[in-house]
Amino acid sequence: MYDFALQRPQSLNEAIEALSVEGAQALAGGQTMIPTLKNRLASPDVLVSIGGISELQGVSETDGTVSIKAGTTHGVVAATVESYPALASLAGNIGDPAVRNRGTIGGSLANNDPSACYPAAALASNASITTNKRTISASDFFMGLFETSLDEGELITQVDFPVPDAANYQKFDQPASRFALVGVFVAKYGNDVRVAVTGASEDGVFRWSEAESALAGNFSSSAIDGLEVDPESMIEDIHGSRSYRANLVKVMTKRAVAAC
């Protein structure tokens, strides 16, 4: 690791202040950031650890909304969220237990790894992502690989998930990393169905609109049968070709619908 100063503010305001300095970067759970630093792939001057800020911790569930403070770990979400089981289950399958005890929802969304699970849930639920400055709809938040609409120094503080009538997340593991080789989150709100896909596309998490239309009319896995995903935009690597990932998107979507 390159040298840096590690700050540990105790309040949100202190954290925002610390992040306003040039070269400062937020450190959430660190489960991606720290391996990146170890390999000297990042060189912040200042890391602002937000793990000790109690304002950023906790889950509340009211009026059909699950509100998760940004510093809440995957483990806490998995163990406490009751009204949105698909979301709890997704959180309970990120990484491994020790990673889930450190990794946070805010960190995951801000990083927007194209194979991460949370972006699929946020996009499929059209979650509202609140920062110290504003609230951003998930549809406007994800901007491609590791890119989001967050500004410099802007910090996610809370994520609100409208609870759907039915939802399910199907994750097909990349065999080594256990990230999603393909993950599909299906959420049904009345007649509106949202299908968000992670792991598959070179543009990061995306909505599979053809599937959404088909499912809006007929919410059953057979509705997907006639659809094909265009392999062109899919990721290709040693774990799967474009056409393999395109197939997985379809299979996982069907399975998610069937499990709803």
């Binding site: 590690l6 450190l27 660190g30 720290i34 990673v99 450190r102």
Partner: peptide, 13 residues
Amino acid sequence: GKAVKSCTIFAIE
């Protein structure tokens, strides 16, 4: 009381 990977947390944290 929680299992964590001690290589992925700073001592100061």
